[in-house]
């Protein structure tokens, strides 16, 4: 995607000078940021799509709740480092393929969201469900028009955690060489060069906050009734 890092081969004279480091490399760094962005967001989108039916099943068929939530919880115990390393050999992708990052992070998102979605749907007041059914909603309409909208705040809270965690975890993928902001960390580590590390940290935190804020705003826009209650 971008040109290889242009930088010092030996320890720099001014290891803290961010401006100096960025000189001529803004485009490269922005490229890493863009890469980091979609590596963090894509797994959340895919993970959410996969977790929705599983979470619904966990709510709909009571006996599946404990096994589904337990199994998805177990996925979380697998260290990301190991997944990044093992996935290519399991599915036969090239070591530098971004899919090697997307798949583990999707797994983590599913692990987190199954429980969140099940709990969110379970938190919908039973009387509201009965009222919806009594008005003639089919099960699917009820899910789409009543249960999911009411569960949005809970699901949104889960997504915030997932996105923020992913932004942090993508950086670990620098170990396997997939370029993103984590590349700046490895680079700085090898040369004892602070500036790229600081740039990476700042951009990573900013990205996490921005995505977090985006979800907060989206939840707010999708649930206008909560604002009405809060304003009273």
């Amino acid at each position: 995607m971008s040109s290889p890092p242009v930088g010092y081969l030996a320890a720099p004279d001014q290891p803290w000078n961010v401006q100096h480091y960025l000189d001529g490399k803004v485009g490269y760094v922005l490229g890493l940021l863009w890469q980091h962005l979609w590596l963090s967001v894509l797994p959340v989108v895919i993970g959410l799509i996969i977790a929705l039916p599983i979470g619904y099943a966990a709510k709909r068929f009571k006996w599946t709740y404990t096994p589904l939530v337990t199994i998805s919880g177990l996925l979380y115990t697998i260290p990301s480092l190991a997944l990044f390393v093992v996935i290519p050999s399991v599915i036969g992708t090239q070591i530098l393929d971004p899919i090697n990052v997307v798949i583990p992070l999707t797994i983590y998102t599913i692990a987190l969201m199954v429980r969140v979605i099940a709990d969110g749907l379970r938190s919908v007041d039973e009387t509201v469900l009965q009222a919806a059914s009594a008005m003639g909603y089919s099960r699917f309409q009820r899910l789409l028009k009543v249960e999911l909208p009411i569960a949005i705040p809970v699901i949104g809270a889960g997504l915030r955690v997932a996105v923020v965690a992913n932004v942090g975890m993508v950086a670990v993928a620098a170990v396997i060489g997939v370029p993103q902001l984590g590349t700046l960390f490895s680079y700085g580590k090898d040369l004892f060069y602070y500036a790229p590390i600081v740039v990476g940290l700042v951009l990573s935190v900013a990205l996490a906050f921005a995505l977090d804020l985006l979800i907060v705003l989206a939840v707010r826009a999708l649930t206008p009734w909560r604002k009405a209650v809060a304003a009273r």
Binding site: V161, V164, A165, V167, G168, M169, V170, A171, V172, A174, L181, G182, L184, F185, S186, G188, K189, Y194, I197, V198, G200, L201, S204, V205, A208, F209, D212
Partner: peptide
């Protein structure tokens, strides 16, 4: 939560 563990560690 927003701090990337690897980045912070290396820093």
């Amino acid at each position: 939560r927003a701090l990337p563990a690897v980045g912070l560690l290396i820093f």
